[in-house]
Amino acid sequence: MNSLPLWHRLFVAAVVIFLAAPVLIIVGVAFTSAEFVTFPPRGFSLRWFEKVLTDAQFMVPLWNSFLLGVASTATSIVLAVPAAITLVRNQVPMKDAVLAFMLSPLSLPTIILATSLLFFLARFGLGTSPVGLLIGHVIITVPYVLRTLLGVYAGIGPETEEAARTLGAGRWRTFWHVTLPMIRPGLLAGGILAFLLSFDEVAVALLLSTTDTTTLPVSLLSYLVYNYDPAVAAISTVQIVIVVVLLLILERCFGVNHLVLPSK
């Protein structure tokens, strides 16, 4: 770090400020004692935290968002792992077209996806079901998990797997004991990305959620339109804390660097 030229350090500092400033402002505003969102915050108070932590219109959606994020991540992984293995190791006809198709949800504005899903899923009786909401989120998160997995898996030669097969391990055993540990960085990185995307997603949830499945971003959005108090800053801070704590647990348990960077 010492050897970095001054302009380089200034540039890094600018990027850090650019990324961190909005978060710091939200956290600052959450502790205000004022009725309004103002920055710098006036006075110090925990009243907005008390309001959101005891208010079902925030806490129930927060829990829903968490469950939906976990379910979307698990489903995305189950779908993306076989796809990645097949696309990297096998001769798939029109491989590029298949890959482009599987990544195509990335190019679609989510609000358009949400509107089509609303009418499409309703035809199958899933328009108001939690499964419909999960399908919507998985369509959004699968490409991210797949893309991350492909990057990691393509960088690993087939030799280790071939050695396992030669030594008598079956397909499943090879996958479980050889492939899975090797693609673990991609799996975790993609999984974290998928969870965060689902946890934050608003368009699909806006149209596909019901009173039982309203997610936090949806309740924040409808709250923000008609209410000017800093309660949304407080619940956003709670949300940030949850994500940071999750990342810290991952770091403590496994070491994030170790997980998301391929081992050398």
Binding site: A71, T73, A74, T75, I77, V131, T213, C253
Partner: peptide, 17 residues
């Protein structure tokens, strides 16, 4: 952790459905 996540996911689905 993954198994737990999948389990939570599955039970959520059952509860939500």
């Amino acid at each position: 952790a993954l198994n737990a996540a999948a389990l939570i996911g599955a039970s959520t689905l059952a509860a939500m459905a």
